[in-house]
């Protein structure tokens, strides 16, 4: 269980409060108006933002003071998820060995991950020679080898076309189910939230509310969400 206990997250002169529990292996959407603090919430869980107060714990272990790389969290950002000067193999390999060289076994593991996301022959390619969808798949292969228990998506597929985005989200859901990963994803599209996530967190008016059933939230939205959904 991921627990945010009386958290207050500062971001400049804006602060977000969060107090919630997210059960393991669940898939949760994070929805709300732009600028409400959806990314801030994810960044705090990943360790990129300090808490003013409160604590974050995972399976009873306190994460609050851990740097991002030491948390059981993998995150995909809106952009900059791959190093452009490295091959797909090297990029995925960083998930296993961020500071050293890959052993032959690890190379085999990277190859398997690339095959799993549907890019069996692309190991030597650099991101610039891959399509947007293929680049997303490389980033997902890296998440796969990272074996972190929580995956946070801060709209990494926003630049893809609608069909491709659905394809990627389906792949993410499949992978998360296979590996038992807890998934949280920021979503601007209520349909994405409905399709993928049974639960949703509403972020509005400086507060992140505890997860509730996505269907209920979207069918009977509170005022802040209603004006956003239109």
């Amino acid at each position: 269980m991921l627990k945010l206990d009386g958290c207050r997250i500062a971001n400049g002169d804006f602060a977000l409060s969060a107090d919630m529990e997210i059960s393991e292996r669940s898939t949760v959407a994070v929805i709300g108006p732009s600028g409400a603090g959806k990314s801030t919430l994810l960044e705090a869980i990943a360790g990129f933002r300090d808490l003013e107060r409160g604590k974050i714990s995972w399976r009873g272990r306190d994460l609050t003071d851990l740097p991002p790389g030491k948390r059981p969290v993998a995150m995909l950002f809106q952009d900059g998820n791959l190093f452009p000067h490295m091959t797909a193999l090297q990029n995925v390999g960083l998930g296993l060995r961020p500071n050293g060289k890959l052993s032959p076994d690890e190379v085999a593991e990277v190859d398997a991950a690339l095959a799993r996301v549907g890019l069996p022959d692309m190991a030597a390619r650099k991101p610039a020679t891959l399509s947007g969808g293929q680049q997303s798949r490389v980033a997902l292969a890296r998440v796969l080898v990272q074996r972190r228990e929580i995956l946070l998506l801060d709209e990494p597929f926003a630049a893809l076309g609608p069909a491709l985005k659905v394809e990627m989200l389906d792949l993410v859901r499949e992978l998360a189910a296979e590996t038992g990963t807890t998934l949280m994803m920021v979503s601007h599209d209520p349909e994405d939230a409905r399709r993928i996530c049974r639960k949703a967190i509403l972020v509005a008016e400086n507060t992140a509310l505890a997860p509730q059933a996505t269907v209920d939230l979207l069918n009977d939205p509170p005022p802040a969400l209603r004006s956003y959904l239109g």
Binding site: A46, P68, G69, F77, P98, N99
Partner: peptide, 13 residues
């Protein structure tokens, strides 16, 4: 700015 967060989340020293 562009790659710092990724490197940190990968635990790159």
């Amino acid at each position: 700015q562009r790659f710092g967060p990724l490197a940190q989340s990968l635990d790159m020293r």
